[in-house]
Design a protein around this nucleic acid. Sequence first.
DNA 1: CTAGGGATACCA
DNA 2: TGGTATCCCTAG
Length: 592
Amino acid sequence: MPNTHTAAWVAEFVLRQPVEDWLANEIFLALPLPSPLPFRLRRTILLRRLTSDLSRGSPSLHTLHSLDLLLDDPPTSSSSSSSAESMAVAYRAVALHCISLSFSASNYDAFTTFVDLLRSRVADLELAGPAVLAAEPLKKLRMEIDAAVESGIVSGGLLERDTSNEALDAIRVYLKAAMEELGPPFLELAAEIVARNGIELGEPCSETSAKSGDKVKVSGVAGGVGERTSSVSVAVNGEVVHLEKNKQISSAVVDHGGNRETVLLETNPETSSTSCDTLDKDMENEIARKQNAVVHLGKPTDKFDPMSAPEVEKVANALKSSCVDLHKVVVDPLPDAVMKATEVLKNRSFGMTNDVEELEIQRQVGASGPVSAAKNGSKDNGADEIVEQSKVGASGQVSAVKTGSKDNGVDEIVEQSKKNDALDVDGSMQQRKDDAVQSNREPSVEKQSDGIDNRVQAAPTIHAEMKGTGISNTDGVQKRSLMDRNPTAHTFEWGEDPIESSSDKSPAAEKITLPSPKRKKTCSPLTIMENKKLVIRRKRKRWSSLEEETLRKAVRKHGVGNWKFILSCFSKIFEDRTEVDLKDKWRNMTRH
DNA sequence: CTAGGGATACCA
DNA sequence: TGGTATCCCTAG
């Protein structure tokens, strides 16, 4: 049985490495992570998202969302005022950039709605006070937003400013402070301790530093002769890690302010393999050989340099060649995403319309995270999905949900104005039916089974969202069999709008709005029953000859049945198709 | 995730 | 109006 805490350490370590997003995403999704995510990992994920946005040079609503989630994390004892200040500054800069983008977009309603939501969020943040973060930048931001709301325009020469670069600079500053505050990954830290202290019991106390610039204090508690335990405590910039060792089990307690995490390290060579089954076998042997439960995957030290070990070299080479092989068959979506993002920025649309930002609006009881954004319909690098598919677990008090194809502007702004609305939103936004059932049992754990290839598809998402509205026919009442299909079921296509009529040419999906808690409460049971019968049917789209030919070739190459894989390989060509579509089409093609 | 049955849209 | 293509739903 995998050790979820070990997986969390590995995930944290991987996310801190300069590996490509898709690779980090794959590794992340493959790990059996604990739920809820440990504080450090959650923060690491969000910082990684910011880093990714930074590297793409395109601050977006997605960036704002990341910062928003970070704001919801409780301050740790190691939180520095400079970090809080830079976070607020970054938040303001990114928010202003988003305002500028949204104002430049043709959709004026979207602009005002966005600004309204943002103002509400900033007001909330201000109420949280300086204990959470420096209030001054937010105060300024609120005033700027107020000015925009009152006048209906963006003041202060915002449109003339290079808000994008301002935002990027601010993010850069914040990331530096946040990374310093976070300290090195746990694995690096633990490995450093082991490397310096050895794993022998009874070693004297020592003080060292895991990384230049980090304040690391290590104290060892020696067990007496015949005793089985020893412990090591490490303080990294206010976060305390206690490593305790006995014959078979070492425990580690990570203490970051009010959040205390206890984890176990199996240190016995005989048992270590069971706790590290996500690691390569060769590595395990190395671990066993050194009677060490902690693998130092980071920078080599003078005492312990596993990177020079032939076994590790072998693993590294294998990984490298595997990556090359993977690149041969999988198109890296990152360049495409960057191109599209640039294009969107040029068009000054509301922004971020070409990123895939699949949002899981998840709430943990008592938390709040009012500004959230989700967009579907295109491609992105894996970093986005890392968080959205995982259990960052922050909340969405106000959610801006974007769905639809790449040409859409702001498709939808959904407002959830009550914090205690969590149960209505939780687990209902993105999951298909089965997942939704699962998420009801375990609201904080929502992870899709595939990673970067799990391209967001508008239809399932909308389905899921409709579930959130109580419009889905699969919510609650399950049909017993195919024969039980309700003859009164109503279907409509994109372009129709059963919810509100409008001459707007935008897809119906754009107008799907999650009900406010009040509205939901006023729904009569009859209305809910009727709504459950509604089914959105995608607009019928004929297969092009290119699609057909691609499908033929793909099936020849990869075989029948690997629809998901084929779809991921040719996601560009099979745009708006699902793996089921591929299967159906193949069935149809082979029928005649 | 995939297979397969059924529902529905489209077209001649 | 019937055949076909596409989409949806559910079981395993």
